[in-house]
Write a protein that binds this DNA or RNA. Structure first.
Lengths: 253, 253
DNA sequence: CGCGACCTTGAGTAGGCTCAATGCCGGTGG
DNA sequence: CCACCGGCATTGAGCCTACTCAAGGTCGCG
């Protein structure tokens, strides 16, 4: 309990992984499931607010996020923070650290998380023995690059109002496909306005005012770290959408 | 000549590829070189200003940039453009298009380019038969994600002056490791201030003034699509550097 | 010689920033 | 039970960075 990361004995066998039931994840062959099962060395819990990775560290592990949410970020020497993206269940974390020498960004838990743990060396065995899974790893890397591209477009070229609208829609969509939204379009996500500001490259105050505008317009509701999209089409219009991400089924390691 | 893309018969065998001599690229085994050689189906030339990919297209090819420069970008419906990053020789282009359904960004040549062409299906054979090369593809994907992370940090959290300084240093470093700089720190790169503006999320006018400041400070010189870093340490200081990219040797496909 | 592409510069505006204060919890210790 | 404190949202005021509009200026090219 005093530990930041609580290491657990292996819990759920991959074959029974509840995430895998979602139909956004591509079905794995029994053989693949076997491999992943032994690739996985355990589980770990991280408490909300705790770090999973710290920039500059050389982490020996890879993770698949099983439950909970997190975010990736970078800091400038004087403390300015840029949130790069959000991590949702099914995301494969730590690839950069395994593939390059060290992690160039940090990851922090937004809510309590459970993660599958893999050893760095296991990744190499994965590449040697499973072309399909290797391709999946690459697929996941390409996907997160796409998300980053979108985010960069937003931060670089959209107005504050557009950015907010776009981000909320993006989060809604990502959580919806995981079944993490309540009825309607209500997203429960433990972020503060400071997180949003740091994601969008805005100041806290201005973020607050911009969200206020969206609320007064009746496009969203925001209360207690939970927001609801009331008028999706209005929001999409405000966001200057550029075409959504592919909804293709994805791999889950 | 009337063609946008000029397809050439196979020219240089990979074993003799001049790029491969650079010591930033990891040495390949003869066996790997053989495979890459037959993976490569030809070469293509693209003229400065011409597109290599267009967003939304479903491209059947993958490329390795042999010579010349390009940039990746996205557009908003109303025409605002965000340049995502620059492509330099050795970069592997089109992975997103091969791995996902379609390309979510465009690529345009900055200067005349020569590229190696690979078939999309060849990538699958690569994964099946060459774990090392598969790993390399993933490595390259992870690296471009890192570069994007940096860029996002810049656009989101740095001031105009910091962004300019950071970008110039970044370009200098990337071109220097390829031996594409002249003596000293002179970078010859055919970009306009509009490119810089679209990279940094700034307006053209403000970019001009900011570069002007850097020039008046004596940190850089800019003339005719070519700039020179006169005072690297000053520039680094202005850039609020966050730690450079790994200089590790990289794969070249 | 005129035109197009690009760089410069001026002037005025505004979107977004900082500083600062207030209000609203929920948790904690006295 | 209550007072206090810390984290977060909100709001006002004033400022400044960066944007827009608008004119040139330079250079290369047909």
């Amino acid at each position: 309990m005093a530990e930041k990361k609580e290491v657990l004995a292996r819990q759920v066998p991959c074959q029974l992984c509840p995430l895998r039931k979602l139909d956004i994840f591509r079905p794995f062959t029994p053989e693949e499931l076997d491999f992943v099962s032994q690739f996985k060395t355990g589980e770990v819990k991280v408490k909300a607010g705790d770090p999973l990775f710290l920039e500059g560290a050389n982490c020996a592990h890879l993770y698949t996020l099983l439950s909970g949410l997190a975010f990736r970020y970078k800091l400038l020497p004087d403390g300015r923070r840029q949130i790069l993206n959000y991590c949702t269940p099914g995301d494969f974390l730590g690839l950069q650290g395994s593939v390059m020498q060290e992690m160039q960004h940090s990851v922090e838990a937004l809510s309590d998380m459970v993660l599958c743990v893999f050893q760095r060396e296991g990744l190499w065995r994965l590449f040697e023995s499973h072309a399909g899974l290797s391709f999946d790893v690459t697929w996941l890397a390409a996907r997160s690059e796409q998300i980053l591209d979108q985010q960069l477009l937003s931060v670089g070229r959209r107005s504050a109002l557009e950015r907010c609208a776009h981000l909320l829609l993006h989060l809604l969509d990502r959580l919806a496909e995981l079944g993490m939204t309540s009825s309607r379009a209500t997203v429960s996500i433990p972020i503060t306005q400071q997180h949003i500001a740091d994601t969008l490259g805005l100041s806290l105050v201005h973020t607050n005012r911009t969200l206020g505008r969206l609320m007064r317009e009746g496009a969203i509701r925001w209360r207690e770290k939970e927001f609801e999209i009331l008028d999706r089409s209005r929001l999409a219009e405000l966001a200057s959408e550029e075409g959504a991400l592919t909804g293709a089924t994805r791999p889950l390691l």
